[in-house]
Design a protein around this nucleic acid. Structure first.
Lengths: 132, 132
DNA sequence: CATACATATGCATATATGTACATGTGAACA
DNA sequence: TGTTCACATGTACATATATGCATATGTATG
């Protein structure tokens, strides 16, 4: 017979019972809302692409225009523009127009901080890049 | 005629010249290696999915087994296992076996830190969840 | 040793997403 | 006002990936 019959059962998971109902209740109470975590995932997702990360790393060093970025990163201009659009919509970068040229930069120091924390995780063996 | 003819030209970007060759040189010198940034992107990518993030948020509160997770998050057991496998390969979570049950937890405090930094970025309006 | 159960894995598929190509937009300048 | 050039956008497509289903693995137990 089941050890704990008083918890929500889902025959797709554990056949007869959930194993630690107390733990589940505790975690459920403290777990951030699903919608909040979804929003957070969308944020992290933007850092989860090599191209975008190279753009962000470059912008963390200096303000750059689209042309500079595409030369620097050896990318087609439309590809850079598309990524910048995504990053701008997410308020990760901001744009500043000067004549025909548009300069992009990180919106705030917080973005730089996120990059730094990730770099640190890759391990001290990489000797954290001074750029970030 | 071009203002600066001494810089690497890529007709796909700026037709006649790159705009700020000095800035490009400076950034190029400080930019982390492409491979390092690719590795970093792979790391962030794992946080860029709502499901995985819910798993990580749950594990940041308590050690849990697969069955608990699938009940808690209302997911099929194989889906949870698949994500846990990915997270384990990336050393973001670790597993501990106890009989038939396998308990998962975050590998270290650094992961919790990454989650916290992301939460903070979502803005103070969310009143940073005490769970993280 | 056979059964039960928690978890892992293989495979198929639907969806998401990054990039290329072509074209549109907008500002400066003659 | 027409041209040039930096940048943006629309569409198409190829790839990556998250999930569901079926099934395998491994451990305890009778």
């Amino acid at each position: 017979m089941p050890k704990t019959s008083s918890c929500e059962n889902d025959p797709d998971n554990c056949l007869t019972q959930c194993i630690h109902p107390a733990a589940i209740r505790a975690v459920r109470a403290a777990l951030p809302a699903r919608s909040l975590l979804a929003e957070l995932a969308e944020f992290y997702k933007l850092f989860g692409d090599g191209t975008r990360l190279r753009i962000l790393a470059a912008l963390s060093i200096a303000e750059l225009c689209v042309c500079d970025l595409s030369t620097l990163l050896d990318m087609k201009q439309p590809a850079v523009s598309h990524q910048l659009r995504t990053l701008k919509q997410a308020r990760i970068v901001k744009a500043r127009r000067e004549g025909k040229v548009i300069y992009y930069s990180l919106t705030d120091e917080h973005i730089r901080h996120v990059l730094r924390v990730g770099m640190e995780h890759l391990g001290e063996q990489y000797e954290t890049t001074e750029a970030l």
